[in-house]
Design a binder for these strands. Structure first.
Lengths: 338, 338
DNA sequence: CACTGCCTTGACACCGGTGTAAGTCACCGT
DNA sequence: ACGGTGACTTACACCGGTGTCAAGGCAGTG
């Protein structure tokens, strides 16, 4: 009698039982203002009694938009991805939105086709792009073409404000290197991230900025490149620590490589921070758990992701929030005064 | 002419342009066998020309089921969660399914209501439950009641086969402790996980099994409990290393706590593995990146998640696949012969 | 040549919501 | 008494697919 057979109650059930039209029920659900209070209460009572919840698929069909936001990423750093997921979730909690995740393979030649198929098939409300693929302009264009609103997260402003939430890696690195200089270091090595990553380029610029400001010349002998992994950090550390004179401090463009440098130093019998100071970037779990705990730059992933999600689902509110985020230096125990 | 105004082409556009009914187009999309080849080709040509992709919301509405599978978790370990996401994705790649994630807060008193609201609102096809909340039977019942198919991942068989993918933590730990015993250790400390976690209980049982088999009596002085965090690992390490005689090896129920034990040992001036051997569990990134690299137990997260996803979307295929997974001991450098 | 049955296709209702335009009713001014 | 007004409410088409069932074409059969 209350509902058809096994299914959940529908708007029709509610309408029938409360003796109004389905459109009126629809108005109650959507909190339409032009609605008599008595009617509203009557309908709400029936809704509560039945435990009615609107069918999101039907809504999506009628509205010609759904309430799914996508997260597209090819990020190797689990902590970062999860931080982003949590940031997004904090923004969509208590809304009807849900989060769909889609890891992709950056190296795959048909990554773009893959994403296109995903977007065409799912017809998401909007998507968020995480670095490093957020740096891919073709991807942003694809979203534009497909009429999917998007927001990119990145280490530098890459797109118009409405499509971008950025940290400022260049400035953050510059400050971190300043900090080393302030502690008396003059010979500061640098481990760059992989070419092609915008974040890597920005971090290199920050390093150069700081040295230039302090009047310290660049020295290629104490600069190396890694690909953000522990292993390449070891290799870079070995190279830098073989230079003469040996650097008294090394800045690595992410924590994994910093851990690699630490490993290399240890292998050479150097103690950290007495013989070598190390600073990393990202403040991932590893930074706090290695010995000595790593001084590193933390950028506010969750807050950025939250801001990005708000841009997607509520552009008006988003204009009242920052689009640019500053990173902090987290002082632990891997830096000593020189 | 080809499509109405700005929207994507619909089944009606395809039907009109190819001069057949929409039902026929529907048959083409769904690869219905009772269909003339000529017709099929004609329609397929139009589909290709228009770039038509069926609207998933309309499909979901008509079929009364959608193609979203949910991942509900409250897991603090980013690596694990991401591994699971990737496992699921490998199973649903090239299907029309998509993955919706939903972190929840285990400690929140209305966690169940939260999940209920999520399931009622989104009407997912099915959900996967990750430990530790996968150990919550009330949650499984909730899914059952709501008619949402579910699969639980866990460290031990907790449910009927069709709802469960399990590793065997008890046996894995037992083997790891056997390994220490085989290396000559007789005084082996144990850091348990938090009470209330099934995985913690299983791992404790494994420890007891191994000692019992070797005829080594339990000694509470070299057993401690932590809550799977680095900090509690330090505390546990301090306690165990203060015991006399001092243990020559410690098994910690996860890698973070193992890292904490390592930290504690270092603080006391002990070197690892010379003075103390340490074995962890999970093989998270931290295990490979600390010094010395940690010998640990790896359980096949991705494969398990993949199997779980297949259980959800293709039960027939799932019966051809394993539901139980074995863990391996990964030998690194934190264990020495005693 | 009418009858039967198979193969293929189409008409139409339906899934559960929303938009639009039209309807009802009490109240108002003239 | 009558048209006008504003506040609510309803009927009905529509979103874009799928299920049901009937119909058309055609070969095989008696």
């Amino acid at each position: 009698m209350k509902k058809s057979k096994d299914g959940k109650p529908t708007i029709n059930d509610v309408a029938r039982l409360s003796g109004v039209s389905k459109k009126t029920v629809s108005r109650v659900i959507n909190r339409s203002p032009l609605l008599n209070d008595a009617t509203r209460e009557k309908v709400e009572a029936v809704i509560a009694e039945l435990g009615y919840v609107p069918n999101p698929q039907a809504r999506a069909l009628a509205l010609r938009r759904n309430f799914l936001i996508g997260l597209i990423h090819d990020n190797p750093n689990a902590q970062m991805v999860l931080g982003v997921q949590e940031g997004i979730l904090s923004a969509i909690r208590d809304t009807e939105f849900a989060l769909v995740v889609r890891p992709v393979n950056r190296r795959s030649p048909d990554m773009l086709d893959d994403v296109r198929a995903f977007l065409e098939q799912q017809r998401l409300f909007g998507v968020m792009l995480l670095p490093p693929i957020s740096e891919n302009d073709a991807l942003a264009e694809l979203c534009e073409d497909l009429g999917v609103t998007y927001v990119r997260m990145g280490s530098v402003q890459l797109d118009e404000d409405e499509h971008m939430v950025a940290s400022n890696d260049r400035e953050a690195v510059s400050q971190a290197v300043d900090y080393l200089i302030g502690r008396g270091h003059r010979r500061i090595g640098f481990v760059a991230g992989p070419e092609g990553f915008r974040s890597a380029a920005e971090r290199s610029l920050g390093y150069r900025d700081a040295l230039e400001k302090a009047g310290i010349p660049l020295d290629e002998a104490i600069m190396a490149e890694g690909n953000y992994t522990f292993e390449t950090g070891i290799a870079a550390g070995k190279k830098l620590l073989a230079a003469t004179p040996r650097p008294s401090a090394i800045f690595a463009s992410n924590d994994e490589m910093a851990a690699g440098v630490l490993h290399a130093a240890r292998t050479l019998g150097l103690s950290v921070p007495e013989d070598l100071s190390i600073v990393g970037f990202d403040d991932t779990a590893i930074a706090a758990h290695i010995w000595p705990p790593l001084t590193t730059v933390r950028w506010p992933i969750q807050a950025m992701a939250r801001a990005a999600a708000i841009k997607l689902i509520d552009p008006a509110e988003a204009r009242r929030q920052p689009s640019h985020f500053l990173s902090d230096l987290i002082e632990r125990a891997s830096v000593a005064t020189c």
